[in-house]
């Protein structure tokens, strides 16, 4: 039974690898054919991932949101979907190389670094049984997808400014700045919705929609950084390099929220708190 699911996931993984390479090649040597290959292969990967997740949902009898492995897969799904949406909206593939590399890294984490025992479907615990949690995960992933693309644009902007050999192969500064804006404009509403659905879930689960929990606070920090992004753009003299830097910083905050917050919570927490 499990064979089908893993077959789809294997194809997804290969597609992500191929599309990452194709996007990088396309970035360095723009060519219509390579662009179509990159987009096409990512789309096939997304479809395969969707089918794999659907198979898993049917087999487990619940949405694939019961453990870290499944959350990671849904994340991957959201990032690829958000990126392809952005590509359609902006008609450029500028952010593809970076975003797909991130997606490929996440996929490697899920399918290579996660032990098989942690990948087996598990029953859904009562606390995770909520539509708001599901919406929260998907919207977060979509937001992160937009922010990853924006970070790619920000990095390319700085690289382009240095004017080294690779730089003249990249899109123009104006184009990169515009792409950065469009990517954040995609990610920001999704991130806002993610915070709202997360707060509603917290309210429904334990009657407290905002308790300054460390994860909540970091999600708010992400939101504040991108709020700064919009406000700094309309402030004189902030367009261009400063906004590129804000995008990169913002994505670092995103990565920390996703990966570093539990470490921070352990470091900061007073161990004997449960005494009370």
């Amino acid at each position: 039974m499990n064979f089908h699911e893993s077959a789809f996931f294997n194809i997804t993984y290969l597609c992500l690898l191929a599309s990452t390479i194709a996007y990088i090649v396309h970035l360095l040597k723009p060519n219509r054919w390579m662009g179509w290959v990159a987009t096409g292969v990512s789309a096939v990967g997304l479809v395969m991932l969707t089918i794999g997740l659907a198979v898993r949902t049917v087999q487990a009898g619940h949405w694939p949101l019961a453990n870290t492995y499944e959350f990671t897969l849904v994340f991957l799904w959201g990032i690829v979907l958000a990126y392809l949406l952005l590509e359609r909206m902006t008609n450029t593939r500028a952010g593809g190389a970076f975003t797909m590399s991130i997606a490929f890294l996440i996929a490697t984490y899920a399918w290579v670094l996660t032990p098989a025992s942690a990948r087996t479907p598990q029953p859904l615990l009562p606390a995770l049984r909520s539509i708001w949690l599901q919406l929260h995960t998907i919207t977060t992933a979509m937001g992160y997808g937009g922010f990853a693309a924006a970070c790619g644009a920000g990095l390319m902007y700085l690289l382009k400014e240095t004017g080294t050999g690779l730089a003249d192969k990249l899109p123009s500064l104006q184009e990169l700045d515009a792409y950065n804006y469009r990517a954040v404009a995609l990610g920001y509403p999704w991130m806002s919705l993610a915070i709202i659905t997360g707060a509603i879930w917290a309210q429904v689960a334990w009657g407290n929609y905002w308790s300054w929990d460390i994860k909540e606070t970091w999600a708010l920090l992400t939101w504040l950084v991108y709020t700064l992004f919009f406000h700094s753009r309309v402030t004189r003299g902030w367009r261009g390099r400063p906004t590129a830097i804000v995008s990169i910083l913002g994505f670092l905050v995103v990565l920390f929220t996703f990966l570093g917050v539990s470490w921070l919570a352990r470091r900061v927490g007073l161990e004997s708190l449960h005494v009370y």
Binding site: T217, L224, L228, L273
Partner: peptide, 20 residues
């Protein structure tokens, strides 16, 4: 607004670096 947004961001960050 930009200055205050920076201040709120920094203050919220500070709150996650110490046990509350």
């Amino acid at each position: 607004a930009v200055i205050l947004l920076l201040a709120v961001t920094a203050a919220s960050l500070l709150g996650t670096l110490f046990p509350q």
